[in-house]
């Protein structure tokens, strides 16, 4: 059931440990949310799962195999794609180039071209902006490009770091709608969010992280309503 897991994971920057012994699991067809105050280590945890951050101790397990020593490239090939905080658009690359770098792990040129075309089919708004530079796009368009980049490799698991941060409310709604569709299409989503209210709408499982430690976990059946959750959140 749990296809992607962190087991007793420790990591940090320099000599400072940021995440201390966290275990979480995420499954396909589900949205798993990690909440927590700023500096709680949730983004760092996500990076460790993505392979952008070394795991000091503990393990990362995907489909019952340890991927802890796999570089990001191999994890992507295995089906785990990641969108960093603020999206993954490169300001000086065109939309087209942004999508192609999203599909960097696809070595076959024809296949790459085909994937780009599929993304344009999916997001017709982007097709009109092929040549535009990343920095010339609106916030919403940038988010579209980021999702497009994410989907280039047709991953099984999507790791998202605050996908709603800095977006207009109307765009946030669209993003969560998109995530809901992806979930329904069978993708597994593991995301870090500050926007608890909207995230709860699509969450199947939640974790709360404080100072690098897991303090709360609620599986699908036990997810409380927002009010109750906020109470919990405030207490910890």
């Amino acid at each position: 059931m749990s296809d992607l897991q962190a087991k007793d994971l420790h990591t940090g920057y320099g000599r400072v440990e940021i995440v201390s012994g966290v275990s979480i699991s995420a499954a396909l067809g589900q949205v798993t949310c990690i909440f927590g105050p700023n500096g709680s280590g949730k983004s760092t945890l996500l990076k460790a799962v993505a392979g952008a951050q070394p795991t000091w101790r503990g393990d990362v397990v995907y489909r019952d195999t340890s991927i802890r020593d796999q570089p990001t490239e191999e994890r992507i090939l295995g089906g785990i794609a990641t969108m960093p905080q603020g999206g993954s658009v490169f300001a000086d690359l065109s939309v087209d180039e942004n999508l192609r770098i999203g599909g960097h792990t696809i070595r076959d040129r024809t296949q790459l071209r085909q994937r780009v075309a599929e993304i344009y089919d999916r997001f017709p708004a982007l097709a009109k902006k092929r040549r535009a530079r990343g920095s010339d796009l609106s916030g919403g368009q940038q988010m579209l490009v980021s999702v497009g980049q994410l989907l280039m490799t047709d991953p099984q698991f999507l790791l998202l770091d605050e996908p709603s941060a800095g977006l207009a409310p109307s765009v946030v709604k669209e993003v969560f709608q998109m995530l809901r569709e992806l979930k329904e299409a069978g993708k597994g989503i593991l995301m870090v969010e500050q926007n608890v209210r909207d995230a709860l709408q699509i969450a199947d499982q939640i974790y709360i992280l404080v100072q690098g430690k897991l303090v709360y976990h609620a599986p699908r059946a036990d997810i409380p309503d927002l009010k109750t959750l906020m109470k919990v959140y405030m207490q910890v």
Binding site: A52, T72, E73, I76, L77, P84, S88, A91, T153
Partner: peptide
């Protein structure tokens, strides 16, 4: 442009 993002793309 952004080494961190590039790494997440599998570069």
């Amino acid at each position: 442009q952004d080494e961190g993002k590039a790494r997440l793309m599998g570069v």
